[in-house]
Design a protein around this nucleic acid. Structure first.
Lengths: 131, 131
DNA sequence: GTTTTTGCAAAGTATTTGCAAATGG
DNA sequence: CCATTTGCAAATACTTTGCAAAAAC
């Protein structure tokens, strides 16, 4: 791996992810970044998010509908995606914490990680629907 | 929903999915279909796969790398994706069969389904790597 | 005869890449 | 200075869409 140099854009991307819990898309991060650095480019945001995800400094999460989200929390945890508003939120499932090891036992190969993604309607969208 | 009419292209797509277990992409199905119907278009394949997935006749599965796969088996089961060759295979996890209901208990909204996606190296790629 | 589906091509998304200039160490 | 990163624009990859013709019923 090449030596990494500091960049204020990358720092701002990390800061942005750190201070929110809505699992933003690249475009959402880009919108926020433009408030601070009006000339920042979407390419820079994509380049940095990919770099960080490859080095496991952040998590890249792709939902069923093909939308890519990013998460600052790299600890093993699961997610819920609302079919209606598309929001992704955290989910903590108690009895599936050692799932990776569990799968490894019966698997002929190397199991690196395991993601649980749940879908449906979030509280808000569910209440709206029943009106 | 509008009334559906028969189409030999759609039937061939279903047949193709039914007779394989490698969770193909739209393009893989398209390649096979051209052997039977040389003039079939990729648009038709996408249209039909979307239609079938929306009506829950097949499953649409998106892996971490953003690649969309399709599965004829609509019963609840989980998947493994090889990080090296990209192949998707089935995984049957015994103690996570009622996960959707389990999540529902502690969730303020409506939980429709739940996918477990596991990543690593498949048997073949793992053996190659250790040589 | 009316509705659905098709093939084709064009358009739409999301993401990546080439390159010269700017920045970091 | 040399390596990395940036902004910009163009390119790529994947998927959807508009439309007239064909097929289904």
């Amino acid at each position: 791996m090449q030596k990494r140099k500091f960049s204020k854009q990358r720092e701002a991307i990390i800061e942005n992810l750190k201070n929110r819990c809505d699992h933003p898309t690249a475009d959402m991060v880009y919108s926020d970044l433009r408030q601070i650095y009006p000339n920042v480019s979407l390419g820079t945001v994509y380049r940095n998010l990919s770099l960080l995800a490859e080095n496991n400094e952040i998590k890249k999460l792709v939902s069923d509908d093909g939308v890519t989200h990013f998460d600052y929390n790299i600890k093993s945890h699961d997610h819920f995606v609302c079919r209606k508003c598309g929001a992704m939120s955290d989910l903590h499932i108690i009895n599936c914490e050692n799932l990776t090891e569990e799968i490894s036992k019966n698997f002929d190969g190397y199991v690196e990680k395991c993601d649980i993604m749940s879908y449906g309607l979030c509280k808000n969208c569910y209440n709206q629907e029943s009106n």
